[in-house]
């Protein structure tokens, strides 16, 4: 396990800094919170300003796709059971909108503001994630 940490550690920290810089840019530039679920959810609900959110989502999809074309496809986990993937997508879609945020909006932007709601949300979804993975992988033997 520790043999793989140095590389992943640096990549994780560098990628994290880029994520933080992108959120700082959106806040200091446009006065907006970078939350992936909030931006996509309000875009799908037809709320204004739709063009800004569309530009964000389009660039979020296109930039890594172009990087993958240029430098080769990145690591991507094994094939999964499709019904489980669809269930997971529904849970993430409904859950993030109920909670008004996900890993980016609550986990990065809200935590950096020391917002109590975001700290609670992050602890709860992390806890639910740990428990769900343990149940489904180690007790049920799926995923």
């Amino acid at each position: 396990m520790f043999a793989m940490i140095p590389h992943d550690w640096i990549a994780g920290l560098l990628g994290g800094l880029m994520i933080g810089a992108s959120a700082a840019l959106l806040l200091l530039g446009n006065g907006r919170i970078l939350g992936a679920s909030g931006i996509l959810g309000t875009l799908l609900a037809g709320e204004d300003p739709a063009r800004e959110r569309l530009a964000f989502v389009a660039a979020l999809i296109a930039a890594p796709a172009l990087a993958a074309l240029a430098f080769g496809a990145p690591a991507f986990g094994q094939a999964r059971e499709l019904p489980l993937v669809v269930l997971a997508g529904l849970l993430v879609g409904i859950g993030t909108r109920m909670a008004n945020g996900c890993t980016s909006g609550h986990g990065v932007v809200g935590m950096a503001r020391f917002a109590p709601r975001s700290i609670v949300a992050t602890l709860v979804y992390l806890g639910a994630g740990f428990v769900t993975l343990f149940l489904v992988r180690h007790l049920l033997g799926a995923i």
Binding site: I61, A65, P74, L84, L90, L91, A128
Partner: peptide, 30 residues
């Protein structure tokens, strides 16, 4: 709502290994 929504999100996140940002970011090859 905050707590229940975060529970649902955490469960879905663990099941698929995706949260909203990475799901969109990896559409080019996922």
């Amino acid at each position: 709502r905050l707590v229940a929504g975060s529970v649902l999100f955490g469960a879905g996140w663990a099941l698929a290994g995706f949260c909203p940002g990475p799901a969109l970011a990896s559409l080019g090859w996922s």
